[in-house]
Design a binder for these strands. Structure first.
Lengths: 122, 122
DNA sequence: AGCTAATACCTAAGTAAATTTGGTATTTAA
DNA sequence: TTAAATACCAAATTTACTTAGGTATTAGCT
């Protein structure tokens, strides 16, 4: 809630750049953490980026379900402190897909840097 | 043409990550080069990224027109070697918008790197 | 001369992937 | 008892591309 208000105040344009990267980010986090639940993923990204990047749940959950349907992720439910959690982890097949998605994203970042670090040609 | 064929062969997934970054990339190039024409922009990105990133004209031209309509860019036509060129450059107002868009993109890249360089927490 | 590729611009239909907005339910802290 | 945080989800809409066409000129090959 606080963050939604913050987003209105400071016009977090970075969000627009996120388009297309969401799956890869999720896969990267799952490579690092073995298993995570949806809400945890949103909070982790927020922590890592000091609140500059915020995954919306409306985008995250459909993405998780899609990856599960594709056989990239599997789930296990847990009841923690009276609240339901749905943990996601990479399947064996998913680990390979995660690796290639993440390395493509890394390449993309490299290319963006090349573009951004360009010296003027005039 | 050659590149379109190459794109089929090597499944250039990086394209998906480009979503949302296009305007910022265009603005960055125009900060570096004062004026450029559409086709030149596509070729420049291809050069810089060694063919790994390819701006499609179907995406680029509508973006340029939008930025012009917003007053970020102005155009001047030129006839070069019997071919028509439409040069784009930043307006005064556009220079500020370009700067903020580019710095936001740079911040985004930094955040992506933070996510990608994460050490496992387990 | 005729063909293909490269140069240079453009639009429209379709699609993918978000955002926006709503919903449910429990726990914690004021 | 009320708001905020935790935790999940779906549907309608919007955004921003891709795909697939189109026009026209020049360069290079055979």
């Amino acid at each position: 809630m606080v963050f939604k208000i913050l987003m209105y105040i400071c016009d977090m344009q970075q969000q627009t750049y996120l388009k297309g990267c969401l799956s890869a980010i999720v896969l990267q986090l799952l490579q690092d953490n073995k298993r995570m639940y949806g809400y945890e993923i949103t909070q982790r990204v927020r922590e890592i980026t000091a609140g500059e990047l915020q995954l919306t749940e409306g985008a995250l959950y459909p993405t998780l379900h899609k990856l599960e349907a594709e056989g990239v992720l599997t789930t296990e439910n847990a009841l923690v402190d009276g609240r339901n959690r749905k943990y996601y982890k990479l399947t064996e097949n998913g680990q390979q897909q995660a690796q290639s998605a993440v390395s493509e994203l890394a390449d993309f970042v490299t290319n963006l840097q090349k573009i951004l670090n360009l010296k003027p040609s005039l």
